[in-house]
């Protein structure tokens, strides 16, 4: 039996380009050819390519994103193994692993926060750009910059307070895992740092008018 297979990645969102026209301003035009983070309605099933011709800093950030993404993918596989092991343990060994739920729950937090940082770089966090696209050009630019600055600011908060939180609960332990509760909060500073770097990168690019 033959039939057309749906391709792994979808054609990019023509719908928006035509219905929500990208009215470019001189300064942001180049930047918005590679759509800025919120301008594309997201098909989350579609991975975005990393930048094509990055400078040294760009290469470094691409590398960081690639390593983080690899880690997230591995986490998904590990989580599958853990829960399968839990079922196997209960039925075949009649000995439910005590740590499996707890560990899978912590790994899911890692996946969320690190994956959330990559989504900042790839512009896959869902946004409502309908109104912004109807702003006058200057205002649109300003809104775009404000959004990126605020995301950067939140990344900073995650970085600083995440580290503080990890430190506060250092002496506590996670039941059944026997490790410090601060393990729960380690991904916050890491994700925060990545979010700061990725939003700063987008801002610098818009400033320099390069894609």
């Amino acid at each position: 039996m033959t039939s057309t297979r749906p391709p792994l990645s979808r054609p990019s969102s023509r719908c928006t380009r035509s219905t929500l026209p990208t009215r470019c301003s001189p300064t942001l035009c180049a930047a918005s050819r590679r759509p800025p983070m919120t301008d594309v309605p997201n098909d989350p099933t579609e991975p975005r390519p990393l930048d094509r011709a990055p400078g040294p800093v760009g290469r470094l950030l691409n590398g960081a994103a690639a390593v983080t993404q690899f880690f997230c993918t591995a986490l998904m596989v590990v989580m599958t193994v853990i829960i399968s092991w839990q079922i196997f343990g209960r039925f075949i060994l009649n000995n439910t692993p005590k740590w499996s739920e707890q560990l899978a729950g912590v790994l899911m937090v890692y996946l969320t926060l690190l994956g959330g940082a990559i989504a900042v770089k790839e512009g896959r966090h869902i946004a409502l750009t309908y109104f912004r696209d109807r702003f006058p050009v200057k205002l649109r630019e300003a809104a775009w910059v404000v959004c990126h600055l605020l995301v950067l600011g939140f990344g900073l908060i995650m970085l600083v307070y995440g580290a503080k939180m990890a430190q506060l609960v250092q002496a506590w332990t996670i039941p059944t895992l026997g490790v410090s509760t601060s393990v729960n909060y380690w991904p916050f500073p890491v994700s925060g740092a990545l979010i700061v770097a990725f939003s700063a990168q987008a801002l610098v690019r818009a400033w320099r008018n390069t894609p």
Binding site: R90, N94, N95, T96, K98, E101, Q102, P175, T176, G178
Partner: peptide, 21 residues
């Protein structure tokens, strides 16, 4: 309950302790 003491107690009594929400 998700507690080390509770797990140890049930295991020592011969049961199969199962932490669950």
């Amino acid at each position: 309950q998700n507690s080390d003491v509770a797990v140890a107690m049930v295991e020592d009594l011969g049961g199969n302790a199962t932490p669950m929400e």
